[in-house]
Simulated assay, not measured.
Amino acid sequence: MRDHPIPPVTEPLQYRAIGVVRGTYRPEDADQFTRGVLVDAEGQELEAVVLGRMLTLMRRHLAMDAPHLWVVYPRCRDAGHLHLQITGIWEPSTLQPGASDDALPEGDNYFSIRGELIYTRPETGDLVVKVRQKPRADGSRPLPFKLQLKGEIPLDQLRHFVSLDVRRQGQELHVESHELIAPMPTRGGKGRGGARKGGGRSSRPQARA
């Protein structure tokens, strides 16, 4: 088992949107276990679905009436409405014999978001990041998705690849810190910073979960 539920970045332009949320999963009904809500300590309900590989683990090994620290992929279908895809759990004390510390240095409700900044309005604290997903096993490419976030990033960083440390607050994701990685390439091979010189190869963004 890794020592952290969020894997390290392996490429400078690696897309991803992943985080951890502590809560109690409550299925929609007994016959629809894969769809339900995560209820946090404040009683906030977050729309959630369980990805297939988690079903057996949840049913056989977890106390479903207790809170757990879930590893999730965030989606924003509407402003102010967070949707979570449950892909894992971080609970070494339960799943790894001899382990006792389930706490993470970043704390609960932490998300790592990496993608293209396509909208920012610093005066209102609104921004949108586009995230591309890695190809499926059959070779098909899922459509990119957009995450609506809260935070202040200057307009001159629009159309750049950014890495964001984000914290969930209720139904919103708030940027705590951000790093500017690189301008996004445009058609014709030019970035916003100008044409490449010397015929050097540019780094291509790598899609990840």
Score class of each variant (00 low, 15 high):
Asp40Cys: 03
Ala41Tyr: 09
Gln44Met: 12
Val50Thr: 08
Leu51Pro: 02
Met54His: 06
Thr56Gly: 15
Leu57Ser: 14
Asp65Ile: 04
His68Arg: 08
His68Asp: 00
Leu69Glu: 11
Val71Phe: 11
Arg75Gln: 04
Arg75Glu: 01
Asp78Arg: 09
Ala79Cys: 02
Gly80Ala: 03
His81Trp: 09
His81Glu: 04
His83Thr: 05
Gln85Ser: 09
Ile86Tyr: 06
Ile89Arg: 01
Trp90Ile: 09
Glu91Val: 06
Leu95Ala: 07
Leu95Glu: 08
Ser100Leu: 14
Asp101His: 14
Asp102Leu: 10
Asp102His: 09
Pro105Trp: 14
Glu106Gly: 15
Gly107Asp: 11
Gly107Arg: 15
Asn109Pro: 05
Tyr110Asp: 14
Ser112Ile: 13
Ser112His: 09
Ile113Glu: 00
Glu116Thr: 15
Leu117Lys: 07
Thr120Phe: 00
Arg121Pro: 00
Pro122Ile: 14
Thr124His: 04
Gly125Cys: 03
Gly125Val: 01
Gly125Pro: 02
Asp126Trp: 01
Val128Gln: 01
Val129Phe: 13
Val129Gln: 11
Val129Met: 08
Val131Tyr: 05
Gln133Arg: 13
Lys134Val: 04
Pro135Ile: 10
Arg136Lys: 14
Asp138Val: 11
Asp138Ala: 10
Asp138Gln: 10
Ser140Asp: 05
Ser140Pro: 00
Ser140Cys: 03
Arg141Asp: 01
Pro142Gln: 04
Leu143Thr: 03
Phe145Gln: 05
Leu149Tyr: 00
Leu149Ile: 06
Gly151Asp: 08
Gly151Val: 12
Glu152Val: 12
Ile153Asn: 01
Pro154Glu: 11
Leu155Gly: 09
Leu155Trp: 13
Asp156Gln: 15
Asp156Ala: 13
Arg159His: 15
Phe161Lys: 08
Phe161Cys: 13
Val162Ser: 06
Leu164Asn: 14
Arg167Glu: 10
Gln169Ala: 11
Glu172Arg: 10
His174Pro: 05
Glu176Met: 13
His178Gly: 12
